[in-house]
Amino acid sequence: MKPGYKRILLKLSGEALMGDQGFGIRPDILQYVAEEIRSIHDLGVEVAVVVGGGNIFRGIAASSYGMDRASADHMGMLATVINSLALQGTLEGRGLQTRVQSAISMHEVCEPFILRRAVRHLEKGRIVIFAAGTGSPYFTTDTAAVLRAQEIHAEILLKATKVNGVYDSDPEKNADAKLIRNLTYMEVLERQLHVMDMTAISLAMDNGLPLSVFDLLGKGNIARVVCGDESIGTLIR
């Protein structure tokens, strides 16, 4: 297979890492994700990753129970650091050089986010994991993924989820929900399709960043998307 992109950013949801156990990280899924990332790294693709923290703590959910939103979001950012370090350890166990860069300064644990250093890591073939979202409350990790993708000049943002694309309605509630293969960002906004939050979608649209939404647990899906297989998931551009 020949990759269609030189540099990509992969967005992983924290929920995907917990599988069906309801909380935390399932080691077998972490191993699986690492192998999927390795498959595209071996093709010569420069890979950056943003991991959510919903398997450990969701700031927006905690704020709905009366917790201060800024404090809750900072807790969510720390959850993404835990996931990022777990993924780093698993990737390095496979011989892949990996760096975690955090938007919140924690020098003993990982590097601070420095754009030029991140790009240099990518150019040297290292996998860069961006942790702690944007470093600011009120912004989701989806928005952080779009922001980092723009900053490093990624050619596409891959959003690996638990569903196999974008549907016209919730497939868990509507048995007749139809999978949509191609969308424009304006259609996503107008139809209020729940792909990402509106801030992330607007930022991607303003900067012309393509987005592919697909099922993380379909073995080989990441490599297929990177190699231009449009029969996988939904492409938004």
Rank of each mutant, 00 (worst) to 15 (best):
T90K: 14
L91H: 02
E92S: 13
G95D: 09
G95P: 05
L96K: 10
T98A: 11
R99V: 12
R99D: 02
V100C: 05
Q101D: 02
S102P: 09
A103F: 10
I104S: 11
S105M: 13
M106W: 02
E108H: 11
E108V: 09
V109Y: 14
P112Q: 10
R116T: 08
R116Y: 02
R120A: 14
R120P: 00
R120D: 13
R120F: 04
H121P: 01
K124L: 13
K124A: 14
R126V: 00
I127E: 08
G133N: 09
T134N: 10
S136Y: 15
S136N: 15
Y138M: 11
F139M: 10
T140Y: 00
T140E: 04
T140S: 15
T141H: 01
T141I: 03
D142I: 09
A144V: 07
A144N: 05
A145L: 03
R148W: 04
Q150K: 13
E151Y: 04
A154Q: 02
A154V: 03
E155A: 11
I156W: 04
K162A: 09
N164A: 14
N164H: 09
Y167G: 00
Y167N: 02
D168L: 11
S169T: 14
K173V: 04
K173L: 11
D176W: 03
A177S: 12
K178I: 09
I180N: 04
N182W: 02
M186P: 00
E187L: 07
V188S: 06
V188H: 10
L189Q: 07
R191E: 12
Q192N: 14
Q192G: 09
Q192H: 13
H194D: 11
D197E: 10
M198T: 14
I201S: 01
L203G: 07
M205C: 09
N207P: 01
G208Y: 08
L209H: 01
L209N: 01
P210K: 05
P210H: 12
L211I: 15
V213H: 05
D215Y: 15
